[in-house]
């Protein structure tokens, strides 16, 4: 009973009054872009460190 009520509430929440596609698409795209913006500096930092270590080894082998 509780689970069925919960499931009904969940599908009502996901449906967003018939606008589910628009709402979830908007949030999905936005958070994907934000995640990409957050990952970029992490990748850049790793790349910089890897490069710098390589150059440093070249300097004093």
């Amino acid at each position: 009973m509780g689970a069925r009520l919960g499931g009904a509430l969940m599908s009502e929440f996901l449906a967003m009054g018939g606008h589910g596609l628009y709402v979830w698409l908007a949030y999905g795209i936005s958070f994907a872009v934000l995640a990409g913006l957050g990952l970029r500096p992490i990748v850049e930092r790793r790349r910089f460190l890897a490069n710098a270590r390589r150059t440093d080894e070249g300097r004093n082998p």
């Binding site: 913006l37 500096p41 930092r45 710098a52 150059t55």
Partner: peptide, 28 residues
Amino acid sequence: LVAAFLVAGLRNEVLRREADAQWVRDWV
């Protein structure tokens, strides 16, 4: 959140441009 991304990006940019400075090599 975007302020955090900008600070992180700016830190990387500083490292890249000052890559030859002694303090960056010490940090590495």
